[in-house]
Amino acid sequence: MKYSLYIGTNKYSLSTEDDILKLSPDMFQCKHKILLGNKDILKSTQVAYKKLFQKSIDKYNKVSDRKEIKSYYCKINESQKQALATGILIKINEKNYKNLNEEKIIQLFFNQLKIIKKIIKNFYIVSAILYFEKSLTLRIIGIPYSKDKSYKLEVRVSKSSCFTREKIEELRLNLQIQASKDFLKFFILKTKEIINNKKKIDIRQLELFKNYRENRV
């Protein structure tokens, strides 16, 4: 099993709506399974912005002498400094994955999401879709944010405070350990058990055949 993790670089730096739309399930010609969210990832992102930031925006508009923010989503979308969302890509390259139990594969990737939520607490996952490509590929879209009452806008988009170098290294290590443990638990040990059981059956069959031959003689 070969494991790869990418966070918010190149096409996974989701600066605009077009960048997000490029990760829509319809853009990939392969089987997929939605683990979190739905097919309309752009609409889901817009809804998430309201959920995360609207209270803070309303409070900001009441006390700030600056221009009123009518839509924080539109403000970030039009900005040249911040991305609308951050993408995470997880790939597991296993040549014979099509022979593996699909439910166990899905559970393995659900456990990856649990690790992300546990370590990167201020990363709101909007969408997580598992694609059955040449390799197993999980594409995650989320919104990194920070909370700080010393700012007039207390809750705001912030990739830098969410994905520090230390957090990324911690995340990478824990995700890979969890994936390796799950792969061993779900597939390798089970396969060994099947092989061992088959050997036991073969030995018993040989013993029966041996006795049969001796009786015949």
Rank of each mutant, 00 (worst) to 15 (best):
S71G: 08
K95F: 15
Q107E: 15
Q46W: 02
I76N: 10
A85S: 14
A48M: 15
Y72K: 01
K39G: 00
N99H: 13
K67M: 14
N61Q: 07
E78I: 05
K62H: 02
Q80T: 11
T86I: 12
E94F: 04
Y49F: 15
I88T: 04
S71T: 10
D40L: 05
S56I: 12
S44A: 09
F53N: 02
I57H: 02
I90M: 09
S56A: 09
I90V: 15
K39C: 01
K95E: 15
A48N: 12
E68R: 10
I41A: 05
E68F: 09
Q54F: 03
Q80S: 10
N38F: 04
L108W: 00
E78A: 13
K67W: 08
I105D: 04
D65G: 09
S71A: 13
A83D: 14
N77C: 13
S56P: 04
Q82W: 04
Y60Q: 01
I57M: 07
Q107S: 11
S64P: 14
A85N: 07
K75C: 00
E102M: 08
K81D: 15
Y49R: 05
I106L: 01
I88V: 14
C74M: 14
S56D: 04
G87P: 15
D58R: 02
D58L: 08
K59P: 00
N38P: 03
Y72N: 02
K75G: 00
N93R: 14
L89W: 11
K50Q: 12
T86C: 09
A85C: 12
K43L: 14
T86F: 05
Y73C: 02
N93H: 12
E102L: 09
K95W: 12
K75W: 01
Y49P: 00
L52V: 01
Y97T: 02
Y49L: 04
K95M: 13
S79Q: 09
S64V: 09
I76Y: 07
E78R: 15
Y60A: 00
G87D: 10
D65I: 11
S79Y: 03
Q80Y: 06
E94H: 08
K75Y: 05
K70E: 06
Y60I: 06
Q54V: 00
E94C: 01
Y73Q: 02
L42V: 07
N93W: 07
D40P: 07
K75E: 06
L84G: 02
K59F: 05
K104W: 01
K51V: 11
I105V: 08
N96E: 11
I90H: 09
S56W: 08
F53G: 01
K50Y: 09
Q80E: 13
V47S: 10
K81M: 14
C74W: 07
K39D: 09
I41S: 09
S64A: 09
L52K: 00
K104S: 07
R66G: 11
A48C: 14
N99Q: 14
K55F: 10
I106P: 06
I92W: 00
K62N: 06
G87Y: 12
I92A: 04
T86S: 15
R66Q: 15
D58G: 03
N99S: 13
L52G: 01
Y73E: 02
K43E: 13
D40A: 08
Q54N: 05
G87Q: 13
L52E: 05
K43M: 11
